[in-house]
Write a protein that binds this DNA or RNA. Structure first.
Lengths: 259, 259
DNA sequence: CGCCCTGTTGAATCTGGTCAAACTAAGTGG
DNA sequence: CCACTTAGTTTGACCAGATTCAACAGGGCG
């Protein structure tokens, strides 16, 4: 189940490949006792059906969730009930980490489709961090990444118009699929038009209208939830950003603690 | 300069009170050698005048900045030059932490007024983290807090109208001042109308118009950059959120590593 | 003293939201 | 197998909130 794959970067990818914990990118020198330990932490698996909730805002922080398959949306809401989707999450990502400060989840996570996750008990997780000090460091990197992502979204929400938002969104999905070695030009949208609109801060009708416009212009071809990006160049122009696939799945930088 | 103040929470506030490093909330048992060490890290002080830049996007991650006095704005920009302010920062806050993943600053930080900061060398910082393991944990908490804050902003940008945004903004400033034992109902805005508008995703003219409307309604009194909040209740209603000052400056939770 | 930057106010315009209705696909149960 | 429901999506018409453009006021600073 758990195997070691030494990377030239000086890290080990611990897998359970499709269980997000491997993202923690443990440093070299993990012995078999450690791997056994890790195995213990990822044992708890669980399925969620479309619409089922992983955690709710205010609940005690008991699990970190690693997505194995399927997809999840995370969202927060105003006091008067309007909600904002803050992210869509795919296999290999960890959920719930940012509850570490308040010890309570600050938002809610819902399955978009039938989804399999590993529940990692927080206590175990902290124990793990004690045994393998660089776990904290890796968590820092992951959260730093999330902050970066959220800032990108803030830029989008604050400064872009509806068309740019949708084009940006499609490109960002494309990049994420490319990173995971799926087709960057053909994929399924697991979220509804309503969810997309909510995430991008526009009405679902607007999403629909702009999708049809993109289609008329030949930039994309859409068939219900399946989409083909015909012209990434033009899409980048519409998003007003440059298209690049430079980012790697898990940037395995050298860990400063292994000096 | 550095003094120890044992808190009932099991933490020590290291100060240099007005130097944000104390936010790291070091665990008990810091000996004099450690405090001396810490003193070394916070030695580098520096002043920035209004408009001067602390760091730019893409620059190598060399310093973490702790604000001692004044205020700073952080911002990112689209490829075509539009920029989005992602935060205003006041004394006691740390800047630059989220460069930890890519080793490069992802945005830019600019002084809003004459501002004094401690520059903490990243190398020193990592050394510190090695010596005092809970530093990483405290960084996690700070980043978790930032994520929470950014999510709040995303909610605002995605779902609130101009009036709600401004009311929310004033309340959030009020809370921050209250936390630091300044008046929650009377303070100076160190940022321009343009900056406020940019941050909230609305035009500066809209900021101006709504400020005058609030003033006509008697909710606030504004004299250039000085503002008095006359009616927090009504302001909360306008923001459509409940007013509370429950949050504390530095939530000194028990550190799980000091078991 | 006059310039410049910031902020305020007005008027015209437009993007995107809201409301309403039709349509499609996928179930669901008789 | 078909009527019926339901959720998701698309499209049209209308309208409101916010932007844009423009002019102007006033403080602060050289």
């Amino acid at each position: 189940m758990v195997r070691q794959a030494v990377q030239e970067s000086g890290c080990i990818a611990v897998s359970c490949q499709n269980c997000g914990l491997y993202q923690l990118c443990l440093p070299m020198g993990l012995d078999s006792a450690d791997t056994a330990l890790l195995d213990r932490y990822v044992r708890r698996k669980r399925m969620f059906k479309r619409g089922e909730v992983l955690y709710r805002a205010g609940e005690k922080f008991t699990f970190v969730f690693a997505i194995r398959s399927g997809s999840i949306k995370t969202h927060i809401s105003t006091d008067d009930g309007r909600l904002q989707i803050t992210g869509f999450h795919v296999p290999g990502e960890l959920l719930g980490l940012n509850a570490i400060d308040e010890k309570r989840y600050n938002g809610e996570a819902t399955a978009l489709e039938t989804t399999s996750v590993c529940e990692i008990s927080v206590d175990c997780f902290e124990e793990l961090a004690l045994q393998i000090p660089s776990v904290h460091y890796q968590m820092l990197r992951m959260m730093s990444k999330e902050i970066r992502h959220n800032q990108g979204l803030m830029l989008l929400l604050g400064k872009k118009n509806a068309e740019e938002r949708l084009a940006t969104y499609l490109l960002s999905l494309s990049r994420r699929f490319a990173m995971r070695n799926y087709s960057p030009t053909q994929f399924n949208l697991s979220m509804s038009r309503g969810d997309i609109g909510n995430y991008l801060g526009i009405a679902e009708e607007t999403v629909s209208r702009i999708f049809t416009r993109f289609q008329e212009e030949g930039v994309v071809a859409i068939e219900r939830r399946h989409i083909i990006l015909n012209d990434l160049e033009r899409l980048s122009a519409l998003a007003r950003e440059s298209y690049s696939t430079t980012a790697q799945v898990i940037p395995l930088l050298r860990n400063p603690h292994s000096r």
